[in-house]
Design a protein around this nucleic acid. Structure first.
Length: 460
RNA sequence: GCAGGCGUAGUUCAGUGGUAGAACUUCAGCCUUCCAAGCUGAUCACGCGGGUUCGAUUCCCGUCGCCUGCUCCA
C-alpha cells in the first residue's frame, strides 16, 4: 500500500511536470479538483477518442455518432427524473461531524424499510427519531437532511427576471435518446442500431478527488444501442465482449482489469443489469472505467410520455410496433486515460536506472515520432528532409537540444514510440536511424522507405 | 460544509529575526558522431493580508489556495 501511494504520486507528478495535465487556473492558485489537459494529454486524449471511434463507430455500420448540445430543454431532465432524484440526502452527525447519506444509513440499520419509496420528509422523520445511530460515534443526533442538487444550473436569458433555469447535462446519454427519432428517420436506420457521442458531462459531486479520477466536469463516450425488447441479454453480452475487446486493444494490463456485475441492490431503478469494467489503479485500488447497462425502454418511454411524441419503432420485419430497449456501454474518457497512463508508467525501470519510460500504446502516445538531428550542425538538413515527410502522417516532435542520449530519455518519459535520428552519415547515404522506445534497439532505414517502415511498425 | 495535512524556483529539498541556497530541470554558448548527468554563463521562489519589531520568508493572528477522508460510480 505504501509503495502504491508512492507510485501514484510519482505518476501524477510526472504527468503534471511533463505536460500531460495541469492544475486548472493554476496562476490563480488553481481550483479544487479541476484539471486541464496539456499538449501531451490532449494529443493522447484525441488519439484515444479516435481509436474508440474506429472500434465502435467506423467499423460498425449500425452505429451513428452525433454531437448533442450540453444545454438542453430542462424538460429532458424532468422527464428522466434527474431534477427530482438526482441529489443526495445528506446528514451530518452533530457530535463527530461525520457525513452520511440518510437513505444509506437507514437501509443499513433498518433493512426492512422501503427507503427508496420515501420522501425527504419521511426520511428526515426516521433520522430524527433517535432510532438511527451514527456508525462512527454511536450517538443519534443528526442535522436535518440537506439535499444536494447534483446538476449544475445556469440561466438562459439576458435579464435576471426573464431568465429561465437550465442545466448542464449530468450525463451525455439523454442527448442520444432525444435524438432517437431524428437519427432513425434521417439515416433510415433499422433496428438494431446505435447512437453514440463523445462529450462532456457535469456533476456537482460532493466528493470529487483523486486527481482526474473523479471531477465535476468530465468526458464520456457513450453508446445507446437500440433493439427489439426481449433481446436484452443477448445484446448485453455482446457489448460486454466488445468493451473487453476495446480495453485489450488499447493495451491495458489484463491482470489489472475485472468485470463486476452489479447485484440487484446496486442496480439503478431503471436498469435490468449493469456490469462495470474496473481497473486497479495504484493507491486508489479498483475503480470504474466504464459500465455496460441494460436500460430497458425506460428513457424512451419517459420521453415519449413527457413530450407527447411517438417514440416507438415500426418493425418492418413483422409490422409490429414497440419502444426499443437499450444497452448502454458508457466510458469515462478521463478515467480511461488515467488508467492508461498509470499502466504505462514503468516503475521497475525507474527503480533500476532512474529512467522514466511510459510504455503507452503506439497509437495512443502523444507523439508518434520524434525527429532528432544528431548534431546541431544537422538541424536544418534534418528538418528539410524529415519534418514535412513525417508530420504529414504522424504527430511528430522535433528536438535539437541536449545530447542524443538525453533526448532519447525525454521521449521515453512521454512515451514516444519511435525516434528518428539524422546523423552525419545521413548526408551521404540518405538513411536515418530509427530507435525503439521499448527495446532501445536501432535500425538503419532509407529515408525513401521510412514511411513504409513506420506504417508497418504502427500496424503490427 | 466538517476533520486532518500542506504552502520557499518547473521539480526535490535546505535555511535564517537583517529580504534566501543547492541539486536536477530549463535556456544560451562551447563540446559531443547514438542512449541522461563535460565546461561556461543565465532565467526562475519565500501564497496573500495584518500585527509585533528598527527590520519578518522566519514569531503571532487572519485569510486564501491545494491535497486526503467524510464513498461514489463515468
Amino acid at each position: 500500500m505504501e509503495k502504491n501511494e508512492f507510485e501514484f504520486d510519482k505518476i501524477t507528478t510526472h504527468l503534471v511536470t511533463s505536460g500531460f495535465i495541469y492544475p486548472s487556473s493554476e496562476i490563480y492558485g488553481g481550483i479544487s479538483n479541476t484539471w486541464d489537459y496539456g499538449p501531451l494529454g490532449t494529443n493522447m486524449k484525441n488519439h484515444l477518442k479516435e481509436l474508440w471511434r474506429k472500434h465502435f463507430v467506423v467499423s460498425n455500420m449500425n452505429i451513428f455518432q452525433i454531437d448533442p448540445s450540453i444545454i438542453m430543454n430542462p424538460k429532458v431532465w424532468e422527464a428522466t427524473g434527474h431534477v427530482a432524484n438526482f441529489h443526495d440526502p445528506l446528514i451530518d452527525c452533530k457530535y463527530c461531524h461525520s457525513r452520511f447519506r440518510a437513505d444509506d444509513l437507514i437501509k443499513k440499520q433498518k433493512p426492512d424499510m422501503n427507503v427508496d419509496a420515501m420522501s425527504k420528509d419521511e426520511l428526515n422523520q426516521i433520522i430524527q427519531s433517535g432510532e438511527i445511530k451514527c456508525p462512527n460515534c454511536g450517538k443519534s443526533s443528526f442535522t436535518p437532511i440537506r439535499q444536494f442538487q447534483m446538476m449544475f444550473k445556469t440561466t438562459i436569458g439576458v435579464t435576471e427576471d426573464k431568465a429561465s433555469t437550465v442545466y448542464l447535462r449530468p450525463e451525455t446519454a439523454q442527448g442520444l435518446f432525444v435524438n432517437f427519432k431524428n437519427v432513425q428517420r434521417t439515416q433510415r436506420a433499422k433496428l438494431p442500431f446505435g447512437i453514440c457521442d463523445i462529450g462532456k458531462a457535469f456533476r456537482n459531486e460532493i466528493t470529487p478527488g483523486n486527481f482526474t479520477f473523479r471531477t465535476r466536469e468530465f468526458e464520456q463516450m457513450e453508446i445507446e444501442f437500440f433493439f427489439k425488447p426481449g433481446e436484452d441479454l443477448k445484446w448485453f453480452e455482446y457489448w460486454k465482449n466488445e468493451c473487453l475487446e476495446f480495453v485489450n486493444k488499447i493495451g491495458l494490463n489484463k491482470e489489472k482489469l475485472r468485470f463486476r456485475d452489479h447485484s440487484a441492490k446496486e442496480l439503478a431503478f431503471y436498469s435490468k443489469a449493469t456490469c462495470d469494467i474496473e481497473y486497479l489503479y495504484p493507491t486508489l485500488g479498483w475503480g470504474e472505467l466504464m459500465g455496460i447497462a441494460s436500460r430497458t425502454n425506460y428513457d424512451l418511454t419517459r420521453h415519449a410520455e413527457s413530450s407527447g411524441q411517438d417514440l416507438s419503432y415500426l418493425d418492418p420485419t413483422d409490422n409490429s410496433r414497440y419502444v426499443p430497449h437499450v444497452i448502454e456501454p458508457s466510458f469515462g474518457l478521463d478515467r480511461l486515460l488515467l488508467a492508461l497512463l498509470c499502466d504505462a508508467y514503468d516503475v521497475e525501470q525507474l527503480e533500476k536506472d532512474q529512467r522514466i519510460v511510459m510504455h503507452i500504446d503506439k497509437k495512443l502516445a502523444p507523439y508518434s515520432v520524434a525527429i532528432l538531428p544528431l548534431s546541431n550542425k544537422l538541424n536544418e538538413r534534418a528538418k528539410e528532409r524529415l519534418w514535412n515527410l513525417i508530420s504529414a502522417e504522424y504527430d511528430a516532435v522535433f528536438d535539437t537540444t541536449g545530447s542524443i542520449g538525453k533526448r532519447y530519455r525525454r521521449e521515453d518519459a512521454i512515451g514516444t514510440p519511435y525516434c528518428v535520428t539524422f546523423d552525419f552519415d545521413s548526408l551521404d547515404d540518405d538513411a536515418v536511424t530509427v530507435r525503439d522506445r521499448d527495446t532501445m534497439k536501432q535500425e538503419r532505414v532509407k529515408i525513401s522507405e521510412l514511411m513504409t517502415y513506420l506504417y508497418a511498425k504502427f500496424h503490427e
